[in-house]
Structure formats: structure tokens, C-alpha cells
Computed example of a mutant assay.
Amino acid sequence: MTRSPDRAPARGPAAERVTGVDLARAAAVVGMMAIHVLPGEEAPGAGGVLYALAHGRASGLFAVLAGVSLGLATRRAASPAQRRGARAGVVVRGLLVALVGLLLVDAGSRVAVILPYYGVAFAVVLPFLWWPARRLAVVAVGWLALAPLVSFAVRAAQDLQPRYEQPTLGWLGRPGDLLEALTLTGYYPVVGWAGYLLLGLAVSRVDLRSPRAALGVLGAGAAAAAAAWAGSALLLGPGGGRAVLDGVAGPSAVDLARFYGTVPTDSRWWLAVVSPHSGTPFDLLHTGGTALAVLGAACLLPAAVTRFLHPVAAVGAMPLTVYTAHVLALAGTDDQSTGLLAAHVAGALVFATLWRRVVGRGPLELVVGRTAAAAAAAVAGRPAPVG
């Protein structure tokens, strides 16, 4: 990947929105909608294909893009005071995002809400915010490969079982259970998922408006995704892992198993699977790679194409608002159909386009952004921004 200068130019990626990032973020949001709404890969026609493509990859893309956004938002902080303020802003942003997630669960969400985990992951990456691209890339890949091994060892030693009950505001009175669920045993355990944000931070260091850089991101992502998939296949096939797992969990265990953040600890061979949401090294590296490939491809789209995609970019510019509205709209309904998905996507496109044209930033993005900016200004000892 081609690195940009340490300090962003006045009109560089940190100063303006990168349309490709918004388009990739919209793809992540729509992909998560598909997983929440469609009945599965057995959905008829294109719905089944979309579900298969999005399963596990959409949420990974969402997390990688969180890292990109953090990198773009903080990269221009140069002085110690500015960096202290930027860290405070990131912490406040993460707390508010996590709070929105807990409230969504309290509201009766039928989906596994990613936001509490997402918000906590912000705090984990604070020490890495201004690391250079190459070092970040190495740490991110190492994190995605090794963190699942640490998780497996800790869960096995402590006999920690997966938590399918989602954290709510009431869990703030149970800090031990809350910490365990968010970091190790929940749907999106931060111990592994923080690696996605680190990967996004590394990508934020390159000029994504450069076709050469975007092509490098796409190529690196595609290569990583393919290598992870091939490595899993080799270990499970010629390596003998599938036979062991079939003996542990029954015939076709690998093909039939469904994971929700972690794998069982009754055999180390589970760490070789690449199944969606298994949280193994191969799953995280594959989905991290596909996230880079999608981002690179989105940034390579020519202006002649992106000019017609403003409604899609508008959705990507307010992902917290659109995701929250989507989750709330699903509360109290069990409908699973391509028609419902189409309604949610259409509603998001219309709302985001109109709101962005009339108001600008999404409502939740505006509240979270202003609160985080005020905290950053207070810590840095400068006036709070206006507007």
C-alpha cells in the first residue's frame, strides 16, 4: 500500500469525505440488514446469494471502516494536547455508541446488536491511533491471527460458555458479566474484533483517492481473504481437521455448525474453520481481507459512476442513524422476506438522501460528533467547535 504523508494536507482525506468509504460503509449496512431480515441462504433468488455473501463479512466490513473513520478523524492531531483531546473524543464517542447499542437491546431488538462491542473496541485501539501504516498493518494481521488463540485458551481454562443473552443497561450493575460478554463470550467479542479496527487504522494512512493506493488495498485484501480460505481448507482436509471434528461433534460437523462469535473449546481443531462469526484466525483474516477488497473496489469507482450513487453514499455517511432506525423497525416483528429487506433499504435511501440534502450530518452522527468534539476540546484546552 502507498503511504500518505504523516501530516494530511489541508484538502486531503481527512479534510473531505472519501466517497468510496461512504459507499463501502453503505454496503456494510445493507449487508447487515440482509442478515437480519432474510431467512438465510435458502432465501429465493438473489436474496439467498446476498445472504451468503454478507454473512459474517458485512459486520467485519462495518468494523474495519470504523477503524478507517477513527484514523481519518484523528490523524491531524499533532501536539500532545491535541492528541490527548483526540483520545478523549474517541472514548466519549465509543461510550455513546455503546450506550445506543444497550438501549437498542432494551427496546426489544431481535438482532444481535453490534454497537456495544463496537464502542468498547474504540478504547482498545487508543494506544495505536498515530502509529505508522506498516507497523499498524503488521500488528493488525498479528492481532487477527493470534487473538482468537488467546480467547480460546482463556475460555477453555475458565470454562466460559458463549453468552447468547445480549447485554442491556441493567448489565451496568453486573460489570463482571458485562466485561466477559463484550470481550470474550458475546456475539462480537472485542478481543478479536479490535483487530478489524486496527486494520482500518492502517488503511486510513493511505490516500484512498489514489487509484494506485485503492488498487493496492483491493489486491492485498483479496489475497488475504483467499489465503485464509485456502489455509482453512488445507488444515481441515489434508491436515485431518475435519475428520477430528466429525468425531467430536458428529458427521458433517464443520458443514452444519453455526457460530455466534466463538467456537467450542472441546477441540483446538475448531480454530481451523473459516465459518461466519466463528471468530477463528481464518474467519477474521478472511473477513478482514474481504473488507479491504470491498473498500478498495469502492474507491476505484470513477466519478462517472459515483455521481449516480449519491443516495447510497448518503446512507454510508450516516451509518449509526440508519442502523439504529433499522434495528428499531425490526422490534416486535418476525417477518423475514426479501420484501421487508427492500422496504428497509428503500426507506434508508430516501431518508438519508433527503436528510443529507436538507440538514447535513445524520441526527445521531451529529449528536455523537458534537459531544465527542466538545470533550476533545475541553481536554485539549481549546474552545469547543461551533456548528
Rank of each mutant, 00 (worst) to 15 (best):
T2Q: 08
R7K: 05
A8S: 15
R11G: 12
G12D: 04
P13A: 08
E16L: 08
V18S: 03
V18T: 14
G20T: 05
G20N: 06
R25Y: 11
A26H: 05
A27G: 11
V30D: 10
M32A: 13
M33D: 09
I35R: 12
I35Y: 15
L38Q: 09
G40N: 14
E42F: 08
E42Q: 14
E42A: 13
E42C: 03
G47M: 07
L50W: 14
Y51F: 15
R57W: 11
A58T: 06
S59V: 15
L61F: 15
L61T: 13
L61A: 13
V64S: 13
G67A: 05
V68E: 10
V68P: 12
S69V: 12
S69C: 09
R75D: 03
R76L: 06
A81P: 06
R83Q: 11
G85E: 10
G85D: 12
A86W: 13
R87L: 13
A88S: 12
V91I: 14
V92A: 05
A98R: 04
G101E: 12
L104T: 11
A107M: 08
A107L: 14
A107P: 08
R110M: 12
V113M: 11
I114K: 09
Y118P: 12
G119Y: 14
G119S: 12
V120Q: 14
F122R: 00
A123N: 06
P127F: 07
W131Y: 13
A140D: 06
G142I: 11
L144V: 10
L146I: 13
A147R: 02
V150Y: 09
R155G: 03
R155M: 15
A157T: 04
A157M: 04
Q158K: 06
Q161G: 08
P162H: 02
P162C: 04
R163A: 15
Y164N: 12
P167R: 06
L172A: 08
G176Q: 02
E180V: 14
A181I: 13
T185E: 03
G186L: 04
Y188C: 02
V190K: 01
V191K: 00
G192T: 01
V203Q: 08
D207V: 04
S210T: 05
A222E: 00
A223L: 11
A230M: 07
G231Y: 10
G239M: 04
G239Q: 03
G240D: 06
G241R: 01
V248D: 03
G250A: 05
D255F: 00
F259P: 01
F259Q: 01
P264I: 02
T265V: 15
T265D: 05
V273D: 06
P276T: 01
T290V: 15
A293K: 09
A293E: 06
V294S: 02
V294L: 07
A298R: 08
L301G: 00
P302I: 08
A303M: 00
L309T: 10
P311S: 02
A314W: 03
A314Q: 03
P319G: 06
L320F: 15
Y323E: 14
T324D: 04
G332H: 11
G332Y: 10
G339D: 05
L340Y: 13
H344T: 04
F351L: 05
W355G: 07
R356Y: 05
G360T: 10
G362F: 10
E365W: 14
V367N: 04
G369V: 06
G369H: 10
R370Q: 04
A372T: 04
A373M: 09
A375D: 14
A378S: 15
V379D: 02
A380F: 07
P383L: 15
V386Y: 01
